[in-house]
Design a binder for these strands. Structure first.
Lengths: 195, 195
DNA sequence: GTCTATAGATGGATAGAC
DNA sequence: GTCTATCCATCTATAGAC
């Protein structure tokens, strides 16, 4: 990894752990094993490093979600797999975390990747739900747009509950709860329709 | 208001806006209109002030939620009223916000009020759901514990989505989505059962 | 109780040598 | 490209006068 890459990686970790206000250039340098002058040679400052870090993290998050959501299976199976996939719950979401930082959301450049990521995720989930509905797997009157927003919110809120409890339990409950509600929207697909 | 009260109020506002790391004693003093020496006369430091502030905010939050959830009406109506009540969505949740702060969750004294608040809220929602189920208003097989966690998570996650989008829309979608799913759990209550 | 003075550490960045 | 030195502001708190 190049020096610049190590700086971005360190910044990603620190933004996840401590947020934007809680992350200092000095801490980034220390973690990356890079000196002061070196950092300022590659990046103009904290804000520029944060932007590179946030963009990389956002892209990662989209790629991971798409892997689950574009897999084979019914809509319910794919959404279930996405919600239940292994997560480092107590660390929270590296993107969602930043929405709490006023210095991030007040900076259009920094907020944009957050907005795009969640907008994409809601859209992708809505597509999966719409596919399931079109195939007769899900109730005809299911509102895919609002339900997609609910699914993303359950994950993000689940992290909040888990961190307050210092336990993954409330996260798992929240996920299982919404999956239970979604399961009630499933419909039987006849053999002829499947063909 | 006494000087101590004004300091706690200012701390509450700043913790909400900027979190624990983002809030400095100097900023608290300025907002409260209180001098340096005066603050340190009434409170040992930032941590002690934060504790008083967090406890007050947590109590407020429980009281407000209980007002909606203990009102008359069916379980669905009360939960609906709670979820849809007017909120300053873009400011986020003053309690949930703090779960992102490592210096808060790593301090048992500061984390406790957060944990208690969300545990209480999940329990209270589970009670309301259980009442509705017992009265035949809700499906017999509804899992009240996980559904309660889902409801709280939708609110907390809704704030995250709203702040990322700088718009209340995703929050409203998430809430309407989960209410739609919950509505499918409603059952008819016959006249005799109602009597 | 409140004020001013002071202190050591850290934050975020620049300057210039090598 | 990387290093060290330096800079000014802010952070968090203490000391002591009033």
């Amino acid at each position: 990894m190049t020096t610049a890459d190590r700086l971005v990686e360190s910044t990603r970790e620190l933004l996840w752990e401590r947020g934007y206000v809680g992350t200092s250039p000095k801490a980034i340098q220390r973690r990356a094993g890079v000196g002061q002058g070196s950092m300022y040679h590659h990046f103009a400052g904290k804000a520029e490093l944060a932007l590179a870090a946030v963009r990389a993290t956002a892209e990662d998050m989209r790629a991971k979600a798409d892997a689950q959501l574009s897999a084979p299976g019914t809509a319910y199976e794919r959404i279930s797999a996405y919600l239940l996939r292994e997560r480092d719950v107590l660390r929270g979401c590296p993107i969602g975390r930043l929405t709490q930082d006023p210095d991030v959301v007040s900076d259009p450049g920094l907020r944009q990747p957050l907005d795009e990521t969640f907008a994409w995720l809601r859209g992708r989930l809505a597509e999966v739900l719409a596919e399931g509905r079109a195939r007769g797997e899900l109730a005809e009157d299911l509102d895919v747009t609002t339900t997609a927003a609910t699914l993303v919110a359950v994950l993000q809120g689940g992290y909040v509950l888990a961190r307050s409890a210092e336990s993954v339990e409330p996260f798992q409950h929240a996920v299982r709860g919404v999956l239970g509600l979604l399961a009630a929207q499933r419909r039987d697909v006849s053999d002829e329709e499947r063909a």
